[in-house]
Design a protein around this nucleic acid. Structure first.
Lengths: 276, 276
DNA sequence: CGGTGTTTGGAATATTTATTCCATTTCTGG
DNA sequence: CCAGAAATGGAATAAATATTCCAAACACCG
């Protein structure tokens, strides 16, 4: 490679964060084999700690020597030095959590503690799924829509109701005008929807008729509708100006709300600060 | 060690789960050095994948050869074979989640996507905290109490209301008689509490007066009260027959509900099945 | 098309790491 | 307190893994 001082003489990345930045920065303008290394490493960063040079080289489909050169380009003296970073950083999350989980599960398949372990695991996987599948564009759009609204109408029934009520709580805390459509007394308050308002509708399969009806009504009257649902093909999506999806892993017949709640609060906080 | 066939001739554990079981099974009745190995390995299982024999031996304060013997006692041909198990088992959950998270955060400190990443992380840590700090005894007791009740009265206001309403939903699904005290119209329905019923009260700092009042009232009338709160010293704990605690990591001034929801659903499912 | 500088693959070597072996020490039961 | 068995530590060896080096292939430029 050329002796480009902007890439070479820098000190080696000392944290995983820095490592990713450097990787992204240099990937362009790398020759074929080295780029293969960069791509493979970017997609398999987590395996560095537990692999040998030969393993990774085979994965990237390059000879080991190419991988060595790659490590040196990143600023390390060799593979071992780079690996040390990942071996040391390897722990967060796990310290004795896995032990605990398996102890809880050991209590007996149907025991309450084992159930907690299952739902903890389901929640964790759902959260990771949220991070992986979130569409930042759609989120930005939803935030802009809601931030521009006069009053935000929250609607979510049955399993979605806790989410809607939580949003109502957070909006209240942040002094954002919001109204929770809770269906009490089968009063539907649909004339509370005024021009300039927006609707945040939440529903998951099996979708609530009432929620969809309110969203459609609002859309027909020209109001912006943000949908929080489980699939882009949800019936709610058709009525919506922007759609956010989040899927929860289920355990048996039951489905938690961990990821949905996380997305909801992030949305609320983003809207709250965008309005300031 | 003695040629005890019950410990020796078994095949080596092939999963992490099996590994832990075997470890627990043999630890007693091991000579000093080998027991040091067992203890250290049990407390640092997660580091096997990224350590050398020398590292682990140093940690356990034994010579490397002792650790080798230990691996063989577990049924492996040597350390490398044992390590392979942990290196291969390491993958689930992570595929590119960390990359995604750091990409989301890179979007800008205050960007909506970065907020989602923060709350996802907070939720994950909270869930792990729940797994680590859960007291199975207290949980069993809470389940027994609620399973024995005629009607379960749910009370939780403000931030705890989503949890209470979610519980109401799950109990309904499972055909468990439950009543949600939602405070609509400031009607407090406290005479709905009948002998033989139980109260499941939920509140977090700053604690809701109304929730505590209802719990105290129920306790005074001799009803069982299960508390779901953030600390054992919570004012709710004094009125309760059994106390479950769960703490949420906060991000800025905001606190999610990921762990609380997970505990709640597990509790509800356990109660539901205990009643059958 | 030839020369210069870059990139590449693989074989040779250095280093680290795992594993075995055995002399010595420490237990155990009589 | 002694004999035999078990356990231990460390030095010697084997295996694996990382790293370097260089000849050959390649790309670019005049």
């Amino acid at each position: 490679m050329p002796d480009d001082p902007s890439l070479l003489d820098q000190p080696a990345p000392a944290t995983v964060e820095e490592f990713r930045e450097r990787l992204a920065a240099i990937t362009d303008g790398l020759p074929k084999r080295l780029r293969q290394c960069a791509d493979y490493i970017a997609a398999n960063t987590d395996r560095i700690a537990v692999s040998t040079v030969a393993d990774l080289a085979a994965g990237a489909d390059v000879p080991p020597s190419a991988l060595m050169r790659f490590c040196q380009i990143l600023g390390y003296s060799g593979f071992s030095e780079m690996q040390r970073l990942f071996r040391e950083a390897y722990a967060p999350g796990w310290p004795d959590y896995a032990t605990r989980l398996s102890n809880l599960k050991a209590g007996g398949a149907g025991s309450p503690a084992a159930l907690v372990a299952e739902f903890v695991e389901a929640g964790r996987v759902s959260l990771e799924g949220l991070a992986k599948s979130l569409d930042p564009q759609a989120l930005d759009q939803a935030v802009r829509t809601l931030a521009a609204a006069e009053t935000i109408h929250l609607v979510g029934l049955r399993r979605a109701f806790p989410v809607a009520s939580y949003l109502a709580y957070v909006f209240e805390k942040m002094a954002v005008p919001a109204m929770l459509h809770d269906g009490v007394g089968k009063l539907d308050h649909r004339f509370a929807l005024r021009p300039g308002d927006a609707v945040l509708a939440i529903t998951f399969a099996p979708y609530s008729e009432e929620t969809i009806a309110l969203a459609q009504d609002a859309a027909a009257r020209g109001l912006a509708v943000v949908a929080l649902t489980d699939r882009l093909t949800s019936p709610l999506a058709r009525a919506a100006t922007s759609v956010l999806t989040v899927s929860e892993v289920d355990f048996g017949a039951f489905r938690s709300l961990s990821a949905t709640i996380a997305l909801a609060i992030a949305l609320a906080v983003a809207v709250g600060s965008a309005r300031d």
